[in-house]
Amino acid sequence: MNLSTQNPDLCSKCQLTDVQEFLTRFPIFSGAPAGVVNLFGYLSKKEEYKKGQSILEEGKNCDRLFLILSGKVAIFQYYNERRFHLQLLSGDGINYFGELALLAEFKWFFSAEAWTDVELISISREAFSKVMERYPESYQSMVRKIINVRIHRFVDQSSYLLDHISPEAWREYPEEEE
């Protein structure tokens, strides 16, 4: 129903439609049936974080996927009590993190922090499961996309780490480990 024809002051669906359109830009949701995207749009949550605020912490239970609407998010990890920067994700491109949280329950193995003021869209694992229960035919394709997305990220992060590894740490063969 287009409510705007009946009352120009009310913008029916605006927010929902915006989110739905936003979702289709992400590889996980692109090509998914309209019903699935609509439901994810409806079940997604908007979250806002101020610069410097923690979004998720390593070791805490994961429960949702984050899509960046605007702002920048720093992804990092602690190793030997030192913080290691892994990625800076920006809302200017198509960026997201925590996609594996849709599939399984585990502890976050990285942390995320608002590098600038950030607006995010999140989708919980519970919502993902509920939608997939109703659209089981889409499940396999969604899982495949999530794994692909994860592989891309893994490749990106490995490249980033290799780019920043010190020459002393380079090893060509296993026997050079000692």
């Binding site: 409510l3 002051d9 009310l10 913008c11 029916s12 669906k13 605006c14 927010q15 929902l16 989110v19 749009g41 409806y42 997604s44 908007k46």
Partner: peptide, 13 residues
């Protein structure tokens, strides 16, 4: 408005 995304509320309202 910010919890029920199904409809948007215009600022005039």
């Amino acid at each position: 408005p910010n919890k029920h995304p199904i409809v948007s509320l215009p600022s005039a309202l």
